[in-house]
Design a protein around this nucleic acid. Structure first.
Length: 279
DNA sequence: GGCCAGGTGTACC
DNA sequence: GGTACACATGGC
């Protein structure tokens, strides 16, 4: 099996529904519950009712990506090499665009554990029940844009979304009614696709880049949040005070054709190896 | 209790 | 062009 770190990949801030249970990872892909674990170097997938779709799973987990080839395109700088060494099996997911967009709309100024809570509440309240493991609560799908479009904002707020409820509702209306076609974004340039996404209220460049990277696999999308900002400052510009503009230019040129992957390694590295808070 | 969280929109200068 | 602040909610 190719190199794969399930915890770093599934529980590293890309997706918000995976739960570590008894040494495995349980989640929902589309309308299927699945439990993943590595056993003797092999990936084992357990489903509730049918054999499941292996090709779909491999695509979701980014197992089609040649990590060694990707790392070879990275600039040979100490911070990035250290980040890769710290977590060589970290992969980028290829998530459902709507689930990814909706989840990251909820992410602004929230901690990852809180995003997980909100997503779980949304699914419990508005998702469809699907077959799951015995002796456990029935899992649910992530609610579709159409489903959420019909939910009053007040009910969304009950999922602890706060001011983000209005943004999620607006996105659900636009996507549900087909005014924003998330599948059509696949055929657009990254710049065009980003413009489409940032046309939604509550979706700025950071959230749009997360969706472009974690759902569409766009390597030229480089989300810069407080953690990545801190990584860039501490690891690449120590004892300087680079302007945000300078840092943005740096991310656009320094990391090469797989910048998105570099971003995720740096994000994971700074979060897990420098446990102090961002400044 | 104060500060922060995988930000963004708006109101200022 | 920038900069400051509000926005809900919960963890620490």
């Amino acid at each position: 099996m190719p190199l794969l770190d399930l915890e770093a990949t599934l529980d590293g801030g890309q997706a918000f529904r995976w739960r570590g249970i008894d040494g495995g990872w349980e989640g929902v892909l589309g309308d299927r519950w699945v439990r993943l674990r590595t056993e003797a170097g092999n990936l084992v997938a357990e489903t509730a009712t049918d054999p499941g779709d292996g090709a779909r799973l491999r695509h979701y987990l980014g197992l089609d990506d040649d990590l060694e080839a990707i790392v070879r395109t990275f600039p040979d700088d100490p911070p990035l090499m250290a980040a890769v060494r710290a977590c060589p099996g970290l992969r980028l997911l290829r998530q459902d665009p709507w689930e990814c967009l909706a989840s990251f709309i909820l992410s602004s100024t929230k901690q990852i554990v809180q995003i997980q809570q909100c997503v779980a509440l949304l699914c419990d309240a508005f998702g469809n029940i699907i077959p799951g493991p015995a002796n456990a609560p029935s899992p649910r799908t992530f609610p579709t844009a159409t489903q959420l479009a019909s939910v009053p904002e007040s009910q969304l707020r009950e999922c602890k979304l706060g001011f983000r409820a209005r943004y999620l509702s607006a996105a659900a209306q636009e996507v549900g009614a087909g005014r924003l076609d998330l599948e059509a974004l696949r055929g657009m340039s990254t710049t065009e696709a980003r413009d489409q996404l940032t046309g939604l209220p509550g979706v700025g460049p950071k959230i749009a880049n997360c969706v472009l990277l974690f759902a569409y696999g766009r390597q030229d999308a480089f989300p810069v949040d407080v953690w990545v900002l801190r990584a860039l400052r501490e690891l690449y510009f120590p004892r300087r005070r680079p302007k945000p503009r300078t840092l943005l230019r740096f991310t656009e040129t320094h990391f090469g054709p797989n910048a998105g992957y570099a971003q995720q390694y740096l994000f994971h590295f700074i979060r897990n190896h420098r446990p102090t808070k961002p400044s």
